[in-house]
């Protein structure tokens, strides 16, 4: 029994170490953002808000915030709409070529970002659409739709399919059943998908870097700072990015979780 206990303790510590490894950079970047040293180490320097002040007064950062907000808000709406359509199609219909359809819906995240970036840059500049904010939006929708579809599809799987049929039997048209049965049921997942896709788009740097031209989003600005003179400003911007995307991902998950529990209880 002693061996059992020590293995159990070892495993718990091990899980703790893995989680520390995963969250260490997030915590570190938060701490460094208030640290006066240019090259932070242990022991830490003194507390400062200097890095926040410099980014606050940097017009380039504000431009990037604008680009990022426009992009991620638009991407979240379009990709969630397309993802919802695809999830409903998968939920309700069987048709010839459905596997190919699902592959098209789910494969984009498996393509390396650099290749997506190059392909997008080459194609969009061929048709004269590269270098704009909407170029980033176009590319991000491709990459975000699979996440939106997966989230909505998981929710639809919890729905009793006969609900929709019942609505038809009671005289509702297909459109009416959609708007008063399917959409209300899927609503938490729709909002969740919007948050998740907004977070993915808000964080994406590689493809945005290739196609954005002069319209730099926040991650692209970070990438360019990293390539030049590295300053702890990155930690300040990074903390802002972390907080934004973590909030979005947490909301996305909570929306799915609570509703799932209720569905289980019912």
């Amino acid at each position: 029994m002693n061996a059992d206990r020590s293995i159990a303790i070892f495993l718990r510590i091990y899980v703790g170490v893995v989680f520390c490894f995963i969250f260490a950079p997030i915590v570190a970047s938060f701490v460094f953002s208030f640290n006066s040293d240019r090259f932070p180490t242990i022991p830490l320097g003194s507390f400062t808000l200097h890095w926040y002040e410099t980014i606050w007064s940097d017009p380039d950062v504000w431009d990037a915030v604008r680009v990022s907000l426009i992009t991620s808000a638009t991407v979240s709406v379009i990709s969630t709409f397309i993802g919802f359509c695809a999830a409903y199609t998968d939920f309700r219909y069987r048709f010839f070529g459905k596997n190919a359809y699902l592959a098209l819906a789910l494969l984009p995240p498996t393509i390396p970002l650099v290749i997506m970036g190059l392909a997008m840059l080459a194609w969009l500049s061929r048709i004269g659409m590269s270098g704009h904010i909407y170029s980033i939006i176009i590319a991000h929708v491709v990459m975000c739709t699979p996440f939106a579809m997966a989230v909505v599809r998981i929710r639809l799987a919890q729905m009793d399919p006969s609900l929709e049929a019942a609505a038809w039997n009671l005289g509702a048209s297909e459109w009416r059943a959609m708007s008063s049965v399917i959409v209300p049921f899927a609503l938490p997942a729709i909002v969740s998908a919007m948050c998740l896709t907004a977070a993915v788009s808000f964080d994406e740097f590689a493809v945005a870097w290739f196609v954005s031209g002069l319209n730099k989003s926040i991650p692209v600005v970070i990438l360019e700072i990293l390539q030049g003179q590295v300053t702890p400003q990155i930690n300040a911007i990074g903390t802002f990015v972390f907080l934004t995307s973590m909030t979005l991902v947490v909301i996305a998950q909570v929306l799915l979780m609570t509703r799932t529990r209720k569905a289980e209880a019912a």
């Binding site: 977070a199 964080d203 991650p219 995307s245 991902v249």
Partner: peptide, 10 residues
């Protein structure tokens, strides 16, 4: 889902 780039800088 959280900025890989900033984590790598950290």
């Amino acid at each position: 889902f959280t900025s890989y780039l900033v984590r790598i800088y950290a």
